[in-house]
């Protein structure tokens, strides 16, 4: 197991390096001149643009800039944001709690809910439950998240007044202590619901398909022949096997949790990393974008590693290979 783990860890290093190279190259290839943006599109003269270019360190040739970036990175320094002139790491950490809270919570709920509903539907295909859930899953899968979010705001915040419109806390009240936690929970409901509704269909469909498939397997037929009760076969054997693909997808989606959900964060004015990323794209804030992409590469790699470990623990054939 130890050797297996070590080997998997080693493969992460070239993966990360490759992603750093690709991110750096892609960003600099994209149209848009940061110096022009930061000098002010309307009021900047060419001299101001050149001065800004120098101030941002963009006047050196690309390979020089890349080596400088690598050198800083090797010392654990993600660089200084062009726009905010603050360390990239600080900016990311500022947004991390809100991001993990929203996307993490909704990923878990979507996974658990999707898996349960998928199992229920898959167990009795073509039942009324199965048909209505499948219909709903297609519907929500097809709805754009930002549109659904706005719809929920109009219904539950504007019309019914049950939940606040947007944000993470009531800025006017400025609660402290346990009231502050309740306040955040209250603000979380609509954005979480939005994300859950659009993510759940994926988990639902995978679980359902896999449950249907497992129930046709020979071992299920054999168990039935021995007279084992249907519920026991399903819970102890079929469901466990059926969950494997769902767990895989969940593991991968956890890797993306750290980068938030830009569109939903925008609609609900949620202070997550997704919004920070989108702003950074429009502002051509290269250091900030590189930092966020690197973070994503790391977490996705770790999520894959974690999934591999879980698999290896579950299936001896993998770790022996």
């Amino acid at each position: 197991m130890g050797r297996y783990l070590g080997r998997q860890l080693l493969t992460i290093i070239p993966t990360l390096f490759l992603s750093i190279v690709i991110n750096f190259a892609l960003l600099h290839l994209a149209p848009g001149d940061p110096a022009r943006i930061y000098a002010g599109q309307d009021i900047a003269t060419e001299a101001q643009i050149e001065a800004t270019r120098r101030a941002l360190g963009l006047d050196d040739p690309l390979p020089v800039q890349f080596l400088r970036y690598l050198k800083e990175l090797a010392q654990g320094n993600l660089g200084i944001s062009f726009a905010y002139r603050r360390p990239v790491l600080d900016l990311i950490l500022d947004r991390m709690p809100a991001t993990l809270l929203l996307t993490g919570t909704s990923a878990v709920i979507a996974f658990v809910g999707g898996a349960l509903l998928g199992a229920a539907a898959g167990r009795r295909t073509m039942s009324r439950l199965d048909l209505s859930l499948s219909f709903l899953s297609y519907t929500f899968f097809a709805i754009p998240a930002f549109w659904l979010g706005l719809l929920l705001i109009l219904i539950f915040a504007s019309k019914l007044g049950w939940f606040p419109t947007s944000g993470m806390r009531d800025v006017r009240a400025g609660y402290t202590g346990w009231r502050a936690w309740l306040d955040v929970a209250h603000h979380m409901v609509l954005p979480t619901l939005t994300l859950v509704l659009v993510q759940m269909p994926i988990f639902y469909r995978i679980t359902r398909a896999s449950v249907v498939q497992q129930q046709r397997e020979d071992y299920v037929t054999t168990f039935r022949a021995t007279g084992m009760p249907h519920g026991r076969i399903f819970r102890r054997y079929a469901m466990r096997n059926a969950l494997l693909p769902t767990v895989t997808v969940f593991g991968l989606s956890l890797g993306f949790v750290v980068t938030g959900a830009a569109l939903v964060e925008i609609v609900f004015a949620w202070p997550g990393i997704g919004r920070l990323t989108l702003d950074a794209v429009f502002r051509r804030d290269y250091p900030l974008l590189l930092g966020i992409y690197l973070l994503l590469a790391v977490t996705v790699s770790l999520a894959i590693l974690l999934t591999d470990i879980v698999y290896a623990a579950l299936d001896p054939r993998i770790r022996l290979r």
């Binding site: 706005l150 705001i153 109009l154 915040a157 504007s158 007044g161 606040p164 419109t165 947007s166 944000g167 009531d170 800025v171 006017r172 925008i266 609609v267 609900f268 004015a269 202070p271 919004r275």
Partner: peptide, 20 residues
């Protein structure tokens, strides 16, 4: 004086209409 940051125009309008 509190500046509440809301990037989306539709949401911002609803927040105003909802008294937030």
């Amino acid at each position: 004086l509190i500046f509440n940051i809301i990037p989306d125009a539709n949401t911002a309008l609803q927040a105003l209409l909802n008294g937030e």
